[in-house]
Design a binder for these strands. Structure first.
Lengths: 198, 198
DNA sequence: ACCTGAACACCGTTCAAGT
DNA sequence: ACCTGAACACCGTTCAAGT
């Protein structure tokens, strides 16, 4: 691993992507508060000023990383939602996908929803959240067309489902996430049948 | 306001509480990343080393602030859950209380659930989350005793309700929180009746 | 075009010393 | 008991200069 490029070239191959990868590693290892640009530069083997060439600042780098997280989660949920089946199995696949992502990338998921109330938050992140809700919305409207999902504003339904999935991961630490992954059928049935007695 | 204590005494009256208050202000004004201990000390009118007397470090101060947030939210939800009425009105009161807290203290609520995946997270915060779920759990078991809430593991039901409420605030920015507050009846009815057609 | 090295203003934390 | 002031090691960002 070392001998292949003993003295790194002056121009890093793709410093931008390398920095994002290092940032994701550092996030998982040390948490978001301990992450520093200078440390990322050291990990990537460049000077501390080099990241400034590729990102406007620390916020920009973290926002970009969060955006890649939304893209990956959206892809995963889109695949789960596209699977054929009744509403229960599709909702369960959606829930398993979300909790699975939380298990695989806990710190990244936290970053994705963090710094919500900072004025500098870019519109791109808000749009990414909207796309996620849309991914959940598609199976909802399809179910309504088939008559397997109750009528009502599909936006409200999709938002509630997405919020529940995200809220579950917020309430769980690493251990309880693993338990939750197993107990998801009960949660899904609760969402499907409701809290009132039938 | 100034004349009353033109030159502040050497011993601050209650620096610990003052720092927590300043921290909450700074959090709301600048967001969590911009918050610095030295700035808090300046706001409180003490030297930059003074906070070290009352908090083990920045994390300790923020964790303490988050804990006060959980206590206030728990009190608010406890009052909402204790109101008499049918399950729908009580769940609506609970939801209004949660979203109202998010409207009043958006940055504080974010802090409360942040840094979930750092090893240093104190057990006290995990316990506070547990108490919150317990506050939601009480009306659930009462409703089950009356037969107005469907049978099933009350812990799962309470966790799902709490997760949904929290997730909703995670998906909403300041503007959509205000809209959400008005649309809560639809969300509550969805939780009560479920996603399946009746 | 891309990176370095020095510089600047900040920060968290510690610790002797002051009151 | 509580606070200060100096000190240390770090950080984000900028900018001339190098290749």
């Amino acid at each position: 691993m070392l001998g292949a490029m003993a003295h790194r070239p002056y121009h890093h191959g793709d410093l931008r992507a390398a920095l994002l990868g290092c940032a994701e590693d550092a996030l998982a290892e040390q948490g978001p508060d301990a992450l520093s640009l200078r440390d990322l530069a050291r990990r990537a083997g460049v000077s501390h000023a080099a990241p400034g060439r590729h990102f406007r600042g620390k916020d920009h780098l973290l926002d970009t990383l969060a955006l890649t997280g939304f893209e990956r989660l959206d892809t995963r949920l889109g695949e789960a939602a596209a699977e054929p089946g009744d509403p229960r199995s599709r909702l369960l696949a959606l829930a398993r996908g979300y909790v699975g992502f939380a298990l695989d990338h806990p710190a990244l998921l936290e970053l994705m929803y963090a710094r919500k109330h900072t004025p500098s938050r870019p519109e791109e992140l808000t749009a990414a959240v909207g796309r996620l809700v849309e991914t959940v919305l598609r199976p909802v409207t399809e179910g309504q067309d088939e008559g397997t999902i109750a009528p009502g504003d599909p936006g409200t339904i999709a938002l509630t489902v997405a919020a529940t999935l995200h809220g579950l991961t917020s309430y769980a630490d690493a251990d309880s996430l693993r338990e939750l992954q197993e107990d998801l059928p009960a949660v899904v049935d609760l969402l499907l049948s409701g809290l009132l007695p039938r």
